[in-house]
Design a protein around this nucleic acid. Structure first.
Length: 407
RNA sequence: GGAGGGGUACCCAAGCGGCCAACGGGGCCUGGCUGUAAACCAGGUGGCACUGCCUUCGGGGGUUCGAAUCCCUCCCCCUCCA
């Protein structure tokens, strides 16, 4: 393995945007040895097969894994198909849905398509494993073996377990098994490093100890900051609906990024772009946000698409003009009476509302516009013309296309 | 094994025979102000051509003129003691 950068330089690069490296000296040793022997480090990252959409929060971790790859190391992706059955108690969320092997495989395909927009697909630098490979076949004896290598007291050190224990909130034995199973993954793939968000700190540290108990050199935990979601409060996650997916269309991405609270701009710029925050910080927040959104869209869709997304955003929201791409909705002319239609029915036919009651409410609230003209009355009948623009709220648009009877 | 507390709309949570399509908060939607930010103000947040009707309060059955509210039964969750 030649062309591998100097270990100190590597460490420097790994440190960027990283929350913690535990312990840092060990990582340096591993890097030095790797450089000497030409043996790449095995860098483990667990992926959750229940949520195949990759969002910007996870991209921070993936980007770091990419850094490792670029320095010549191997990404070892662990599909947590078996651990998904246990359900990670981190953050004490309710249990996740059980997935069939087929669903998991389907998700993995989606995952791969997305993951390689960030990772290097070079087969020499990626290894994808399912943890059912070694966990599903583990005997009860194996489980005893594994579980005898960790103590209840150590388990209870974990913040959420600790809290639950003291509040009298039940903790099942099964939940104790989760960190152990994840830790065993590290043994199975002989991980040198494991990546994760800061919420994974405990799990990754258990991995270290378990590896040691199985006679392996412990992995180094590299923790990355958790990105706050577009709501500005909770960490970005699919289930909270506060995420930006890396495969979302440019327009959507740009819009979502513009809607984050100002207080998040710095974090997004630092974690998701290579922009110089110190310089950017002198600008107006709106400018900062646009630059940030532009950079991110550019990363996933290219410069041209990013520029178009920005123009479009400015046209629709700043200048309140008509978007370039408005969904077209066919209205059979048979529905019309003397060329006109009840506004509520029109909204329904255009699928801009979910029910007529909703349509009525929105009209009453002044949210409905026809060709830029606010609809004042719920009872209104409107003359429908081909190419008419229907608008509900700030972002729901539809263009009416009249369809003749004969067609 | 014993004792007790619960299951209400997207979430939390009131209501405990009619005034309940169900208080309040969060979230979300809409309007205003704006920079599609935040903050703030106002309204909305089952369905239906709608001064009314229909479907909702874990499932099923019953009492009653009338039930989210009372009774029976089933399912599920939780706490404490052993």
């Amino acid at each position: 393995m030649h062309g591998m950068p100097d270990p100190k330089e590597q460490l420097e690069r790994i440190r960027r945007r990283t929350e913690a490296i535990i312990p840092e000296e060990e990582l340096l040793h591993k890097l030095e040895r790797s450089c000497r022997t030409g043996e790449p480090l095995r860098v483990k990252l667990g992926i959750d097969p229940t949520a195949p959409d990759i969002h910007l929060g996870f991209s921070v971790v993936l980007q770091k894994l990419r850094d490792f790859q670029d320095m010549g190391h191997v990404a070892v992706l662990i599909v947590g198909d078996f651990t998904a059955r246990i359900g990670d108690p981190s953050g004490r969320k309710t249990t996740r849905p059980m997935l069939s092997p087929e669903e998991i495989e389907r998700n993995l395909q989606t995952y791969k398509e997305q993951i390689f927009r960030i990772l290097d697909p070079d087969p020499a630098k990626v290894e994808i494993r399912h943890n059912s490979e070694w966990l599903a076949s583990m005997t009860f004896e194996g489980v005893l073996e594994l579980s005898s290598r960790y103590t209840v007291a150590r388990m209870l050190e974990r913040d959420d377990f600790h809290q639950r224990f003291h509040e009298g909130v039940p903790i099942t034995i099964r939940e104790f098994l989760y960190p152990l199973a994840q830790a065993y993954d590290s043994v199975a793939v002989r991980a040198d490093v494991e990546l994760g968000g800061t919420d994974q700190r405990f799990n990754l540290l258990v991995g270290r100890e378990i590896q040691e108990r199985y006679g392996q050199e412990p992995q180094v935990a590299v923790l990355l900051p958790l990105l706050v979601g577009t709501d500005g409060v909770k960490k970005m996650s699919k289930s909270e609906g506060n995420y930006v997916g890396i495969t979302e269309p440019p327009q959507e991405m740009f819009g979502k990024l513009m809607s984050i609270p100002d207080s998040l701009i710095e974090q997004y710029v630092r974690l998701l772009t290579d922009l110089d925050w110190e310089a950017l910080n002198k600008e107006h927040p709106l400018t900062q946000k646009k630059r940030m959104a532009f950079e991110i869209v550019k990363r996933y869709h290219g410069e041209e698409a990013a520029a178009r997304a920005q123009e479009e955003f400015e046209r629709v929201f700043s200048k309140r003009e008509r978007p370039t791409d408005v969904p077209r909705v066919e209205i059979p002319s048979a529905k019309l009476e003397d060329g006109s239609l009840w506004i509520v029915e029109l909204l329904e036919a255009a699928r801009l509302v979910q029910s007529r009651s909703e349509a009525r409410r929105l009209i009453q609230q002044g949210a409905v516009e026809l060709d830029g003209q606010r609809v004042e009355s719920v009872e209104a009948r409107v003359a429908v013309r081909d190419g008419m623009l229907l608008k509900v709220g700030k972002k729901r648009f539809a263009e009416i296309v009249l369809r003749g009877d004969g067609a």
